[in-house]
Design a protein around this nucleic acid. Sequence first.
DNA 1: TATATGACGACGA
DNA 2: ATCGTCGCCATAT
Length: 112
Amino acid sequence: MRSSALDADARVQRILATVDSIQKGRVASYGDVAREAGLPRQARLVGRVLGRLPSGSKLAWHRVVDAAGRIRVGGASAREQKRRLEREGVAVSTKNRVDRAFFAFARQRNLD
DNA sequence: TATATGACGACGA
DNA sequence: ATCGTCGCCATAT
């Protein structure tokens, strides 16, 4: 038995389910996905999981960008992600950036 | 047990 | 707005 509340596989499942919950035409940051999955502070784990997805995966991995709305993947995958996003109506700047208006789990700012 | 790594995030210059 | 640094944390070696 694992001593942790959630074993590695359970965390992966939660992350996949959360990414799958992002509506078409919206995006979410790695940190947002982690938080929604009940795994706060584990944005990097989300990135690791998405980076190891099997080739034929049906998951909408392209809907995940960094906290600034920027595409964090390199090479051909970056163009692929941009293409997929634009295809569903998400505007991506020439600098591979998505506006906050497209964020699914929009963060409310504390007006203190 | 210790050190390195990374599809991240927050900040300051 | 951009870039460098440092903080975070599960994994890998």
